[in-house]
Amino acid sequence: MAYDYDKSIRPGKLPHIWCPGCGHGIVMKGLIRAMDTCELDRKNTAIVSGIGCASRLPGYLDACTLHTAHGRGAAFATGVKMAKPEMTVICCGGDGDGTAIGGNHFIHACRRNIDMTYVLMNNFIYGMTGGQFSPCTPTGAIASTTPYGNPDQVFDISKLAIGAGATFVARTTAAHPREIDKLIAQGIKHKGMSIIEVLDDCPTTYGRRNKFRSVIDMMKHLKANSVSVKAAPKMTAEQLEGKFLTGVLFEDTEKPEYCEQYANVIKKAQSA
């Protein structure tokens, strides 16, 4: 029997704005399955985003949804979670939104280890504005603002998140739909900051400029270049060159969660 996504989608809100072949829809379906797995009460779930194609995701879902300003999703989400810790808070957005204009909020949300799940759709480009390079555009790649090839170096979002202090960091790709919901569900269940990086495709503004002739080519590229963390130890450095690791990259269940830390502050203040 087909999976029932409809009960999670707001009536009348489809079709979505995403181009044919865009991976964001795959991620949205993964998120719905993960929310179902975790049996989230949608009234008590806030889905928060910034600006960009990926940030349009919350509007389609039946929950408390907050589409904010460019880069600011994690900061709005911090306010929601801090003020009402009993809510489940999910952030979503793209690579430009999350790691360029929103980079500061991203790293500090990780540092605080506040209990939220951030699904970051990394399609290597600013899609909504027409394909300008982002901090995740591969060096040498063509974007509308790197006509001679991208001279910038690239952020490794997952490493950034681990370095900044997130306590659950996982990566997968839009070519691994079954893994998306499993990792997001693990992230939701994890108490603390969870980053789920989903390597995604933008055929419209990235693919066509970078010799991916079809969506299938992009999906094949994602699949061919991903290596599961379980398989990686058996591979040589040469074999791992240029590959991205997928699966749970980091987990720490010891570090205190931010709202719990603040609950202790309240206790101290009230007993003083």
Binding site: V48, C64, L66, T68, A69, R72, A75, F76, A77, T78, G79, V80, M82, A83, K84, M87, N104, H105, I107, H108, Y262, V265, I266, K268, A269, Q270, A272
Partner: peptide
């Protein structure tokens, strides 16, 4: 604020602080 069960957060920057304030207000605070 913590004495009355309220919340205080020092954010990473000014716009982040404004974002947190709007987010918190949406929960009714």
């Amino acid at each position: 604020l913590p004495k009355v069960g309220g919340k205080f957060i020092q954010m990473e920057d000014e716009i982040g602080a404004m974002a947190a304030v709007i987010g918190a207000s949406l929960t009714g605070a």
